[in-house]
């Protein structure tokens, strides 16, 4: 078995397909490419491939990660060259590299992500300051739990870092958030906290969210 990962971007209107749709797209691209993936055993075999972190529908991603296992050893760069032309507009494979054979999957190691949230100036107004925002010890939002009941959640501990930047008519928020199996903060909830903080409605369709990077436990680098 040979393990590899792809780093790719998902931008433009292709962001409107879900991560399950994208996974299916990759499965099919591998089938068309002739690169043989390892299949699970059993009657309904599935190829072994998966994202380090699923990306929500509507978000763009600049360095998304897909890990997979092949039957034979391939040249990583060659695979990139073979797969790229099979990708639709909006998906660009930037890198393909081998992963160390042993150890946990990237999905198990992923624990954080860097996002850029962009909001038009006239929507967020002038009163948002990241310093004041981060100075709060509690940033409470409401969230539905597994039983679909509304519960209150303090998201402050899940924000690792947050900076602001003004770029022409847009207010950009760069933030490192927990994004793993033990603790996970969706930018959607952060946005809710920003709404509470600013007292402005900030309609979701005015906001653009880009995931720029995925982090792994113990500063693991791939």
């Amino acid at each position: 078995m040979h393990k590899y990962y792809l780093e790719f971007s998902k931008t433009g209107n292709i962001r409107f397909i879900s991560h399950l749709d994208l996974l299916r797209l990759y499965k099919r691209a591998f089938k068309r490419s002739g690169i043989e993936l390892v299949y699970s055993q059993g009657f309904n075999p599935h190829p072994k491939l998966g994202f380090a972190q699923p990306l929500s529908l509507g978000y763009e991603g600049l360095a998304e990660i897909l890990e997979f296992e092949t039957v034979k050893e391939y040249s990583a760069n060659e695979m990139k060259e073979i797969l790229n032309p099979l990708m639709p507009e909006g998906i660009r494979i930037q890198k393909c590299e081998a992963l160390p054979r042993e150890g946990k999957s990237l999905a198990a190691l992923a624990d954080g992500a860097l996002y850029q949230i962009s909001i038009p100036m006239e929507i967020i107004g002038k009163d948002f300051s990241s310093a004041d925002f981060l100075a709060k010890t509690e940033l409470n939002v409401e969230k539905k739990n597994k039983k679909k009941e509304l519960v209150t959640l303090n998201i402050r501990p899940m924000i690792r870092n947050l900076k602001e930047e003004v770029q022409e008519d847009f207010f950009l928020i760069h933030c490192d958030l927990d994004a793993g199996s033990t603790s996970n903060l969706s930018p959607e909830l952060l946005l809710q906290a920003i709404r509470n903080f600013t007292g402005r409605p900030i309609p979701g369709e005015e906001v653009n969210i880009i995931r720029e990077k995925i982090y792994y436990v113990n500063k693991y680098q791939i």
Binding site: N13, I14, F16, S18, G58, P88, G204, E205
Partner: peptide, 17 residues
């Protein structure tokens, strides 16, 4: 701009294989 507001926006984007 409508694609962010509706259900299953993937229906309307085209560009499939």
């Amino acid at each position: 701009p409508l694609l962010k507001k509706i259900e299953k926006p993937g229906r309307y984007i085209g560009g499939e294989l």
